[in-house]
Amino acid sequence: MITALLALDIGGSTSRATLVDMAGNCLGQGKSRGGNPGSNPPDQAAAAIIAAAEAAVADAGVPLNIVVALLAMAGPNVNAARTRIEAAFRALGLSGPLVFSGDLNALLPSVTAATSGYCVVCGTGAGAVRVRDGEIERVADAAGWLLGDLGSGYWLGHQAAIAITAALEGRGPETALTKAILGALDIPLTGERAFDGRPLPLRLLIDAIYAMPPIELAKFAPLVIANRDDAVAAGLLAQSERYLLADFQQVFNPGMPGPVVLAGGIAAHLTGLPAAIAQVMRTAGHEPDIRLSGDGSVGAAVLALRHQGVTVDEAMLIAIAASVKARAAKAITPA
């Protein structure tokens, strides 16, 4: 029986499980839908987490003694589903503890062996953290879509929907986002009126938006990015950058130079953000070290190894990342 560590990177839209041995070699991987209990119903979130773990164990294909299961999870604590998750993991071979960690903890170790630095994340959610000696010391935002996540993918999608509502009513500027988002929802842009006197496209938009879980508004964020030459879209992206810069400034300690990791699917498209962060660091007398995050699965695996007392240096981190990447490539290679 092989000794293994189960590491889960759990976000609002995707949950990924990775099994590694004590040397960081990837033994199996699994993927499911989002398991963030703040943006998914608790039972659905738990089911997604369990499904990802089951897929990883099936991918490993050998009996395992799982000595720890570490969940790097977005959203509020999933205590309500902890018993269900633990029971499922025990059935998969978990003999050790079930450990919960914030998903932001996995960002720094996804790309560097440094245990102190900063993470600025803009994906479905958004915020910034200062990490010292492997522990989060300060947080700005990252409070979820109901309480914050300003500048996030959800925020961009929500604001885009608000903007096209105003445009369709004639109380806001015209925008290319109207055609883009209505097209994504299969709503024709016509001049007809609905039963309530509204433009028919607006009536159908309202119905479509209220029929979806709120967090799914994040799916409009790529349309904002794709239409960044539009004045309304450009304004939303600029505001997103301002929010994320403010988050970084709130957690930045002039006595701690970095590195700074930018993470999340939106962060790479906030093209002015790295330069703005670099200016803050230069003003404090530091040479900026700003990096795009690596695979969150790698960061979660590093956290699981550290929990077991393993010191992960740069060479080992590179090896873990290569092993995870190779396993993923093998999984998608046609037979």
Rank of each mutant, 00 (worst) to 15 (best):
E137V: 13
R242E: 14
P334K: 13
R306M: 11
V312Y: 06
F220N: 06
R16H: 11
D59K: 01
A275N: 06
A167K: 09
I187A: 05
F100S: 03
Y118N: 06
L70Y: 07
G272C: 05
A211D: 15
G75M: 08
P334M: 13
Q29V: 14
N36M: 09
A238R: 15
P254A: 15
I206N: 08
Y210K: 10
R291N: 05
D230L: 02
R242D: 15
F252P: 10
G12L: 08
K330Y: 13
V260S: 01
L146N: 07
P63K: 11
P41K: 05
A7G: 10
V67D: 15
G30N: 02
C26F: 06
P37A: 03
A113Y: 04
S293H: 00
N77C: 03
H269R: 10
R16C: 10
T333C: 14
A321Q: 12
E192R: 13
M256I: 13
A106N: 09
D289H: 01
A268Y: 03
T271H: 13
A48D: 11
M316R: 15
D103F: 12
A180D: 05
V121N: 11
D289K: 00
A58N: 04
N77G: 15
N79V: 04
G265R: 08
T3W: 09
A184K: 10
G151W: 02
Y210C: 10
G258Y: 07
N105F: 02
A106W: 01
I318S: 10
G157T: 04
V224D: 09
I2K: 14
I266M: 09
M281D: 01
R193H: 08
T83F: 09
E137N: 12
T283H: 14
A88H: 10
A328N: 11
A114F: 03
L107E: 12
